[in-house]
Design a protein around this nucleic acid. Structure first.
Lengths: 207, 207
DNA sequence: TAACTTACAAACATTGACATCTGTCACTCT
DNA sequence: AGAGTGACAGATGTCAATGTTTGTAAGTTA
């Protein structure tokens, strides 16, 4: 008889193996052609067992999306929380986001299609992360006000406006439409200028 | 025997009647269910005759799109070309664009679907108008520099950046995603603030 | 002779029979 | 007692036949 603890660890491990197999299968076959049966076959198990560990195919994809979102949300949180001039942090925050999104969208289109499909389906998984991004921006804006860099009366609205102003540079819709038109370096440079414009507006107390 | 002039006038008139019938049929049945035969039937003519006046179904839709684009491009051109403070004209230019787009996208979704489908297909028809919008913005920016409101080293890049910053408020993709979330007045107000931020940046010479 | 029609070919969309996939359940194995 | 299986129902996707639409050409009307 095994202890319940060991069993729980084994289950966690299987969950993880399924996620890794799912990621590999997705990368190989693409979202449309990936089935739960394929994922199970890659691990030499029955597809019914996958359903023991994930409520549904959607839940499995959501879990994958969750991991990818964490991979970007963590570095962004670090930038939002550290010390230093707010303008610099704001710039680094956006450039990190832009680089990450462009790498994912243009570099791993199949994986990204999954992320995007899940975004449409399970809004909840993604919205929690969007709320975090918003919090990051609010935090940087408040810091910028506190140390005298900027004057902002309503950081909440300001965060939304700044994010919207920069959106073309990281929103999948625009990134895909732009694909191949301009180099990463050109986009980065325009994004940097765009942000300088916004930051100058913040410094002038326009919000 | 009719004079060739009278025949030409009659042809122009038929073209116009076909366009109006096409618009009516589209509004009634939607883009997916509208056929050239339907349009012809609405005018009691054979569909072959429609092809005498328009090279293809795509050309017919393009002509419709051309008319809709002209309806917005003209008022925008007027704002870009008139006198007065550049900041005021820039604000009115964007608010006019935003109001028009939102009315069309949210108010006449069927017609807008046609516009959008034609946009994807016949990139050329639309790109000419996009180039005009860009020219409007460059003109307003130059005027703002000339009369000392702003300092802008490269109006071409600046126009692109300003347009991108305001894009969420008029781009069909974002307008549709936003549908019903916020009132026209709330969106207008946020757009106005966003533009003030940008204008303050221009005044500070950030570009 | 320009505006229009009828008749037809080729491209495209719809449908329905068939196959595959998702999700469940009673069961075995360790 | 929880990880895993095999067999099955219902949902979803595929594919070939059938119908509809686009686009053309030869002919008719005013």
């Amino acid at each position: 008889m095994r202890s319940p603890e060991k069993a729980a660890v084994a289950a966690e491990d299987t969950r993880e193996r399924i996620l890794q197999a799912a990621e590999a299968v997705l990368r190989r076959y693409g979202l449309a052609k990936t089935t739960v049966v394929d994922v199970a076959r890659a691990l030499d198990m029955s597809h019914a067992n996958v359903y023991r560990h994930f409520e549904s195919k959607a839940a499995l994809l959501d879990a994958l999306v969750e991991r990818w979102l964490a991979a970007i949300t963590e570095p962004l949180a670090a930038i939002a929380e550290r010390d230093g001039p707010a303008a610099l942090r704001l710039e680094e925050w956006f450039l990190t986001l832009i680089d990450f999104k462009r790498r994912n969208i243009l570099g791993e289109p199949e994986l990204f299609a999954t992320y995007h499909a899940a975004t449409e389906a399970a809004r909840g998984v993604v919205e929690a992360h969007l709320a975090r991004y918003h919090d990051h921006l609010v935090r940087i804006l408040r810091d910028g006000v506190a140390n005298g860099e900027w004057a902002v009366s309503d950081p909440d609205t300001a965060a939304r406006i700044v994010r919207n102003a920069m959106r073309v540079y990281f929103d999948p819709h625009h990134v895909k439409a732009d694909a191949g038109q301009r180099s990463d370096e050109e986009v980065r440079e325009e994004a940097r200028r765009s942000l300088r414009l916004v930051v100058a507006g913040l410094a002038a107390g326009a919000l």
